[in-house]
Amino acid sequence: MNILYNSGTVLIILGLPFFLSGTVGLIRFPDIYTRLHALTKADNVGLGCIVCGLALQSGSWAVTAKLLLIWLLVLIASSASCHLIARSAMHKNIQPWTRS
């Protein structure tokens, strides 16, 4: 039990830098596509780490199933809206940023 709890804590701590780096990327990146990249990928990995950590700590199957369902829904929503935003940005002829 204690080993499970501590490994869950480690997983949660591992997930926090992903969230912070996602926000930093949203602020610092130069382009809408790069910002989308930072936002959706980093945040979903961070949320996955936190969900896995909390599921290890919860100790009940019902809570674990609900946590995984939440993560799955966030994954679907964020990937769908990321794809939509990127495609309509391409339609509006917004050029990707190049180092120059």
Binding site: I32, D43, N44, G46, I50, V51, V74, I85
Partner: peptide, 26 residues
Amino acid sequence: PTAADRMMTAQLFGTCGVAILLLLSA
């Protein structure tokens, strides 16, 4: 600069809000 950037930030708020709610629930 564009409207999509603002909307992306609302999406960031959603993801961060879910994470904060999960942590508060524990």
